[in-house]
Simulated scan of single mutants.
Amino acid sequence: MNITKNFLTIETPTGPFDLYVASPEIKSPVILVFMEAFGVNHHIQSVCERLAQEGFMAVAPDLYHREGRRIVVDYANREAIFPLLGKLTNEDIIEDIKGTLKFLKDLPMADLSQVYSIGFCVGGFMSALGATKLDIKRMVSFYGGGMVRPREGFKIRPILDDLKHIKGQTLFFFGGKDASITESDINVLRQTLSRDSVPHEIVVYENGDHGFFCDERKSYNAEAAVDSWKRTLEFFR
């Protein structure tokens, strides 16, 4: 399938806001792709391109745009993400999602009757947060932290009390070896979704660590990555 891929820019009062967009050359359902803490890097762009090959318009907003344009942090330089990550707020994330969807209304190839989302790491949190506030038909979250417990030094707030507002289907992936998201956290999430009657599936890969889906990270787990991608495509279809 022929696809187009490039950055598009929204002008905002706080400066340019870039979106990486990969799309087939026909009108297509939209999938919002939320970045890891490392930015809209090669991995996130490749996820967009893979989704475009499957028939979706994939759009990755640069959620660090208030700090600068297209900021990307190397996976080996983990400490550098915290000053950026620590400034993100729930309100700014929602504002940026709304701004993205408003911008997409002017793109003739964007079918906004079906909007889905997927996110990785802090993007997993963003994907779930967006589904609590907006009409996201199907939401996927890969190892999204911060949903259950507040984290010291971060402004983003847990969303347990807001999960009841999710209207669409949800799919969560976690790694059993992920020290940043405990089994207790996952159980609390599962109990809350069940209590609030939110349609959900939670998949835990016992041998997976944080970042297991990304083949550019040391924590990559091929078995978990292949299976979760297959499940993701089936879910979106």
Score class of each variant (00 low, 15 high):
1 M>T: 13
1 M>P: 15
2 N>Q: 14
3 I>E: 07
3 I>H: 03
6 N>R: 09
8 L>E: 14
11 E>Y: 01
12 T>V: 11
12 T>I: 12
14 T>R: 05
16 P>G: 06
16 P>W: 02
16 P>M: 06
17 F>N: 10
17 F>L: 13
19 L>R: 01
23 S>H: 00
23 S>N: 09
23 S>L: 01
24 P>V: 12
24 P>Q: 07
31 I>A: 02
33 V>D: 03
34 F>P: 09
34 F>S: 09
37 A>L: 06
39 G>D: 08
40 V>L: 06
43 H>F: 14
44 I>W: 00
44 I>F: 00
45 Q>H: 02
46 S>T: 14
50 R>V: 10
55 G>S: 08
55 G>D: 07
57 M>P: 05
58 A>R: 02
62 D>Y: 01
62 D>A: 04
63 L>N: 06
63 L>C: 03
65 H>V: 13
66 R>M: 08
67 E>K: 09
68 G>V: 13
68 G>L: 07
68 G>A: 07
69 R>V: 15
71 I>Y: 01
79 E>H: 05
79 E>M: 09
80 A>S: 09
81 I>V: 15
82 F>I: 15
83 P>G: 05
83 P>E: 08
83 P>H: 03
84 L>K: 07
84 L>T: 10
85 L>S: 02
85 L>M: 12
89 T>P: 04
89 T>V: 05
89 T>S: 10
93 I>W: 00
96 D>V: 02
99 G>E: 08
107 L>G: 00
107 L>F: 05
110 A>L: 01
112 L>T: 01
112 L>P: 02
113 S>E: 15
115 V>R: 03
119 G>Y: 02
125 F>T: 11
126 M>G: 00
127 S>I: 12
134 L>T: 04
138 R>V: 01
141 S>I: 09
143 Y>D: 12
144 G>E: 07
147 M>D: 03
147 M>N: 06
151 R>K: 11
151 R>L: 13
154 F>H: 11
161 D>C: 03
162 D>N: 05
164 K>Y: 03
165 H>L: 10
168 G>R: 05
170 T>S: 15
171 L>V: 13
171 L>E: 13
174 F>H: 14
174 F>N: 14
175 G>P: 09
175 G>H: 03
175 G>A: 07
175 G>M: 08
177 K>M: 13
178 D>V: 10
179 A>F: 05
180 S>Y: 03
184 S>A: 11
185 D>C: 07
186 I>Y: 01
186 I>L: 05
189 L>R: 04
192 T>M: 08
196 D>L: 07
196 D>C: 09
197 S>T: 14
198 V>C: 10
199 P>S: 06
203 V>C: 11
204 V>D: 08
207 N>Q: 10
208 G>Q: 07
209 D>S: 11
212 F>D: 14
216 E>Q: 12
218 K>W: 00
220 Y>D: 12
220 Y>I: 14
221 N>F: 04
225 A>S: 15
226 V>F: 03
231 R>G: 11
232 T>S: 13
234 E>A: 13
234 E>L: 11
237 R>L: 09
237 R>C: 07
